[in-house]
Design a protein around this nucleic acid. Structure first.
Length: 561
RNA sequence: GCGCCCGUAGCUCAAUUGGAUAGAGCAACGGACUUCUAAUCCGUAGGUUGCAGGUUCGAGUCCUGCCGGGCGCACCA
């Protein structure tokens, strides 16, 4: 159990001092009552809206409540010994001006926690299965997948840091008609490599990459399947190309993701579901629950009972199960593995699928709340000022590989995760290349490198960390830095709860800016010995927090630049 | 037509889940390197948060209706 950080500690002290009075007003300490850093400097270091919130149940004007609260706080040593002064402002805010000693102590307390500072804040540390990317294995990943990979992986890191137990999974859609088309496309490319005339079907995968894959297969098997690749090719040959092509694509997908810093705990094959009884079992469970209806020769899941706008086919009249059928079986499997919550990250083009999936959960007797679907908006590629539709089939796309090659992993990940997932992202690769040196990631990394350089030049060793005596008097930039550092635990909580990694990149920029300002006005190594020692501790803490922020979004924290 | 997402500074985006005077970066302008990393800092300028109502002590944030953009609405996956 790590000690509470500055904000939590102070909140606790206020709460304890005010409890009796709040009880008498039947107000309680609801989560609407917040302690936060006010935007304006003149409003103190910390502020609370408690008087305004309590006004409702106390049936008194906010300002009057605020006066009574401040009276009580003035008599509370545990609050006042941290404060310079307390004042009432605006419609009833109570503003706290902390004394320098309290601020300096907070920094040393945070530093003492090392890599645990800000971690383990989850209110209920549930176990979560996070599924993302899950691209069809019919070609390389593109920048759209890159966005989900960066977002999902950052979310995994953040949730884990916050104390959740998180598993990540890539669902391989290696079954169904798209795979058949992929197999046929490869067979045709293969024949083409042997000099045969081919006519490529419109719905085939025409991207250049199919040639490379076909060549790899050709090198493996020679001409042994050539006779089978005519327009009326034998099913077994198609099956071979489908399977081998899928394996080769997955090898590439896996390795480019590793390069991108994204490693999945599990890869789950849809085709594998069909090698077990998972799908029939799920159908049976739905039949037993009376949720299935046979009509027009097909089996329908009555999802309208659970809020969907139309019922959905699970088994076609041909007897073939739909994608939805195997997806239900897949989610049954996920639940059977004991997760409290399933989070799926889907592209915006799948949002229409949410209602039916949740309905299936309800039909199986599960609480749909356990399934959380995050919709990530799409990435548009801009070329010569024009929006281009990305299509794997036509081969018109910017691959993750190209993105990494042109701007690097750090800039790419920071850029992709630096904006909320629910706004569409336009990516102009040429512009991104030109502008990559303006990427804010370097601003943050530079602060880290700067600190490392200072620590490197100082006489102190890592063993001196945290041994400074708290300063009695601080410069304003020192106060700002500590207060900014004090926001880190809440930033992590906010990022985890709102599933918003961009909170961390935004925070890391603010922290870097605060540090750079501190750097310019507060010399570290040239200060008097006591002061130098304290400032070195501030540097260590800042370095740790920046490194944690960057790590939480999968970006390196370099020691020099 | 119905559903989901978005609309904030010239551009790209934030905004502590409803808090006080809406903030950063880029672009523009003016300053600071014989100094612990100038990939930095300090300052100036830039806004009716798409529009109109509503809810309340308080709205960029919540509700309703418009306008504009994106994405969906299969016995495809």
């Amino acid at each position: 159990m790590s000690p509470p950080d500055l904000l939590d500690d102070f909140t606790g002290r206020i709460g304890m001092s005010l409890q009796p009075m709040l009880d008498s007003w039947h107000a309680g300490l609801s989560d609407r009552i917040i302690l936060e850093r006010p935007a304006a400097r003149g409003h103190g270091d910390l502020a609370t809206n408690i008087a305004m919130v309590a006004a409702g149940s106390a049936k008194l004007p906010p300002l009057e409540i605020a006066r009574k609260i401040v009276e009580v706080l003035q008599d509370s040593p545990q609050v006042m010994h941290l404060c310079e002064k307390v004042e009432i402002a605006g419609p009833g805010f109570i503003n706290f001006f902390l004394n320098d000693k309290a601020i300096a102590d907070a920094a040393l307390g945070a530093l003492a926690q090392g890599r645990d500072y800000g971690s383990g804040t989850a209110a209920q540390p549930e176990s979560i299965l996070l599924e993302f990317v899950s691209a069809n294995p019919t070609g390389p990943l593109h920048v759209g997948h890159a966005r989900y990979a960066a977002y999902g992986d950052s979310l995994k890191r953040i949730l884990s840091f916050a104390g959740y137990k998180v598993g990540t999974e890539f669902y391989i859609n290696d079954y169904g008609s798209q795979m058949d088309i992929f197999g046929i496309s490869l067979a045709l490319r293969y024949a083409e490599l042997w000099g045969r005339e081919i006519r490529f079907p419109d719905e085939g995968y025409q991207g250049e990459y199919t040639v490379h894959i076909a060549r790899m297969i050709k090198d493996e098997i020679g001409d042994s399947l050539l006779a089978d690749t005519d327009p009326d090719a034998r099913e077994s040959a198609i099956a071979f190309f489908r399977k081998r092509g899928c394996e080769l694509v997955l090898d590439e997908v896996r390795s480019v993701l590793v390069r991108f810093g994204v490693v999945f705990d599990d890869w789950f094959s849809e085709a594998g579901l069909y090698q077990s009884d998972a799908v029939p079992n799920a159908m049976q469970a739905l039949t037993d629950a009376g949720e299935l209806l046979v009509q027009d020769g097909a089996s329908w899941l009555l999802t309208t009972r659970h809020g969907d706008d139309k019922d959905r086919v699970l088994i076609r009249s041909s007897g073939e199960p739909t994608y939805f059928a195997s997806d239900i079986a897949y989610h049954q499997d996920k639940l059977s593995r004991g997760f409290d919550r399933l989070i799926n990250i889907w592209g915006a083009d799948h949002h229409g699928y949410i209602a039916r999936m949740k309905a299936a959960f309800a039909a199986l007797g599960h609480d749909p709340e356990r399934l959380e679907i995050i919709i990530g908006q799409l990435v548009n590629v801009i070329e010569l000022g024009e929006r281009k539709q990305m299509s794997k089939r036509k081969g018109t796309m910017v691959s993750l590989e190209e993105l990494i090659d042109s701007i690097g992993v750090d800039a790419a990940r920071f850029y992709l995760v630096d904006r909320s997932a629910d706004s569409t992202l336009d990516l102009d690769l040429e512009k991104a290349k030109l502008k990559s040196e303006e990427n804010p990631v370097y601003y943050v990394q530079y602060a880290h490198a700067r600190i490392c350089s200072i620590l490197d030049r100082s006489e102190e060793t890592p063993a001196d960390s945290g041994n400074s005596t708290a300063c009695e008097s601080l410069e304003s930039q020192e106060r700002e830095l500590v207060l900014k550092l004090a926001e880190f635990p809440r930033t992590v909580t906010g990022a985890a709860d709102s599933r918003g990694p961009q909170r961390l990149t935004a925070y890391s920029r603010e922290l870097a800016a605060t540090f750079h300002a501190f750097y310019h006005s507060c010399p570290v190594l040239k200060a008097s010995p006591d002061m130098a020692s304290f400032r070195l501790d501030l540097c260590r803490l800042t370095r740790n927090v920046i490194a944690m922020c960057l790590d939480l979004v999968g970006v390196e924290a370099p020691e020099s630049m």
